[in-house]
């Protein structure tokens, strides 16, 4: 089949970007979205044009490197699917795809579809961990964790840090990302000693990075490739308020 791509091209943060039209003929329905970009890039290189810069690594939907907007939807039309696993059979012959980078003040564009998501690392750095020096841990079964708590912690811990939640949010909020880590660690007994300080530090950092606030719109949940639930934001708010008042 044949697809028309309109791709955001921007050489660097200083220069203005623009949409550029490409035609992809011979699209195999089994291809993934990033494999389609590979094919387009091979042709560009042979024409001595710069290939489209986009991030990708594992191509199994787990590393969180890839991600861009397709027709205004973060990671494209398929639910719970990153662009590296989005197969072209979900599109029809002749479809036009508008491909743009994540857009958020806290994610400055580096080049084309590549943005700087290091703000996420700094949020984790601010407190997204349990302080346990190597070698000081008690036997694993000394800490009993109810199965339900462990399962819910795992649901939140499944976050891959791709940034789709921020890109989809009209406020460009990182509440789902931050809440997921606060929920993961706060649901476990091991996470209790630092629970409230963690929420305080991480939320302060998320504000300092100029992410917007959460106004319960829910776009983040709708596009999250790992189906992280909005309730993690509620947990974050609860822990943050508790910490702020005590």
């Amino acid at each position: 089949m044949k697809l028309i791509l309109h791709v955001w091209r921007q050489k660097n943060p200083a220069q203005a970007g623009r949409m550029v039209r490409y035609e992809a003929n011979d699209v195999n329905p089994d291809m993934s979205m990033v494999e389609l970009l590979d094919v387009v890039n091979e042709e560009l290189i042979l024409k001595s044009e710069e290939p489209i810069a986009f991030e990708h690594d594992c191509r199994e939907g787990i590393c969180g490197s890839c991600g861009f907007m397709i027709n205004g939807i973060a990671h494209g039309p398929e639910a719970a699917t990153t662009v590296c696993q989005l197969s072209m059979r979900h599109f029809k012959d002749g479809d036009e795809l508008y491909i743009e980078p994540w857009r958020a003040k806290a994610f400055p564009i580096i080049k084309d579809l590549v943005v700087d998501r290091s703000a996420f690392d700094r949020i984790i750095e601010a407190g997204g961990y349990i302080s346990v020096p190597t070698g000081s841990a008690p036997d694993g079964n000394v800490i009993l964790v109810p199965k339900d708590a462990s399962d819910r912690a795992m649901d939140a811990a499944a976050c891959i840090g791709c940034g789709a939640c921020v890109a989809a949010c009209p406020n460009a909020s990182a509440a789902l990302f931050t809440g997921a880590k606060i929920a993961h660690l706060g649901l476990l007994p091991q996470g209790q000693p630092e629970r409230h300080q963690r929420a305080l530090s991480m939320v302060r950092q998320f504000n300092a990075e100029q992410f917007g606030s959460c106004t319960n719109i829910g776009e983040c949940e709708a596009v999250c490739p790992k189906e992280i639930k909005l309730e993690v934001i509620a947990r974050m708010n609860r822990d943050f308020i508790h910490a702020s008042l005590s």
């Binding site: 008690p138 694993g140 964790v145 199965k147 660690l185």
Partner: peptide, 22 residues
């Protein structure tokens, strides 16, 4: 055996039995 202890303490959400053991 030390690895498991370390990772549990870090909050790695390993699968659990209903009694809370690993």
């Amino acid at each position: 055996v030390d690895i498991i202890d370390q990772c549990v303490a870090q909050g790695v959400p390993f699968a659990r039995e209903y009694g809370g053991t690993l």
